[in-house]
Write a protein that binds this DNA or RNA. Structure first.
Lengths: 252, 252
DNA sequence: GTGCCTTATGTACTAAAGTATATAACGAAA
DNA sequence: TTTCGTTATATACTTTAGTACATAAGGCAC
């Protein structure tokens, strides 16, 4: 038994973007005309024209610009707005596909038991969720020490149970998400492991506490809440922090 | 712009369970016959019969049992296998709906910017993921202390940033998931907050470490990794542990 | 103007799915 | 045996979506 589900955008209750139309739009983008695109897909010119017409009239801004006559008889091109729409659809679809895969993995309908679904689409309170690649896995019988390579080039050590490594089928080279709370971050004293550095791009002080956002480059940011007495922090200055490696959760 | 997506189970590449058929099955369950169900849905008897026939022949076990003749002319009832299938579909569909809602929330296609999707369908390394209800929220300007009521009746304090409370729109009465690593659990010394008790249902010892699973009742279980020297733990005995409240992440 | 290739539009046909309707078979109960 | 409401099955019609094809109109290049 398999799961399937087609993602469609709707507008005013009418189907707006569906898989077929997306394929058509990509073909138009490639060939520069509705007629050639229709042949390439393949589908009849009329259906293609109608699909394009519906999309354009449903959209607040035109998705394609059509021109009749001219050098090569005219043509159809995707507008900038249409391009971003295509990108957005791809993003959402990728996430949707991921979700379905995960759902399928957890599903054993044959045996009738898959109550252990839990929450798949969860929104987390942890402000720090950083995408990174698995560099190495060092296992003992109980724990595993995993080294992640951040986009900025810095590395992050994570300790999780060996059981979790097996459950998530974590492998070297895989892309994972490191999740930790802002209170798992503290100032670097010059010795500890998991040293990360960056510059302060946001700062919010209180009498006792101080929330800072650290940019490590490549769009990787860390949120930390420190005690104000800790130091004199200023916007724009460099900072060295430590993330406690056994406070980090991995997500796949 | 709205997102929509119909979940369908497939079998041998053929659509097996789809929303329409699920509705029909529920009607059959209620009315006890295909003909009455078809009227109630409404749809033609033929379509209904064909749908039932396809499902039954695609399924490894019959979903409905049909009988012709007899007291009231016969009838159709859902088999036990069919019932579990309905339940399973409902479960998966609920999760799918949740996912789409979350996806929609994060989507602002009008403005064209929704790159901050991140991973929605994430599988976490943390072994402890406990469903609980929000009892109270005590906020300061930076942090919030949230008390959760577990199914077993015990309560759990969680500290997260006030920002996270707003982002997740956490409210009293809501159902949330408390997530924490097994190393956030330690033995209760008789004083600390977040005291939880239960009985040991699994135990795995090592020279230095000890993995235990604690059942707190109502299917709530905690996994903890402690140092073996800590105590003499035995299977079935009661145990008191503490979960560090600032190591807990909330999921919605 | 003529040629050319396209968009734009209409019409007839086709395939698939569903509806409406009729009818046979079934089997317990009166 | 008759009655009854159901499943099972066939046939004709309808609806919908799409295909195939024909034709007008646009506008640049020659």
């Amino acid at each position: 038994m398999e799961l399937s589900s087609a993602l469609t955008f709707e507008m005013l209750g009418k189907p707006f973007l569906l898989e077929k139309r997306i394929v058509l739009l990509h073909a138009i983008k490639e060939h520069g005309s509705i007629s050639k695109a229709a042949k390439a897909v393949p589908m009849s010119y009329k259906s293609a024209w109608e699909a394009v017409d519906v999309m354009n009239s449903l959209s607040p801004e035109p998705i394609v610009s059509r021109e009749t006559g001219g050098k090569d008889g005219g043509g159809t091109t995707i507008t900038e707005y249409g391009e971003t729409l295509l990108q957005n659809y791809a993003l959402l679809k990728a996430e949707h596909t991921r979700f379905l895969e995960r759902l399928s993995e957890l599903t054993e309908i044959q045996s009738g038991t898959f109550k252990t679904i839990g929450r798949l689409a969860m929104q987390l309170s942890a402000r720090n969720q950083i995408q990174a690649e698995v560099l190495s896995i060092t296992s003992t019988s109980v724990h595993a020490d995993i080294v992640l390579a951040l986009k900025s080039g810095q590395s992050l050590h994570v300790v999780i149970t060996q059981e979790a490594v097996e459950n998530l089928q974590i492998e070297v080279g895989q892309s994972m998400t490191a999740i930790f709370k802002s209170n798992a971050v503290s100032l670097w004293q010059g010795e500890e492991e998991n040293h990360l550095s960056g510059s302060i791009v946001e700062l919010e002080k209180d009498e006792t506490l101080c929330k800072i956002v650290i940019d490590m480059g490549n769009h990787d940011k860390i949120v930390a809440v420190l005690e104000t007495s800790d130091t004199t922090l200023t916007l724009g200055s460099n900072i060295d922090v430590v993330v406690q490696k056994n406070h980090i959760i991995l997500g796949k």
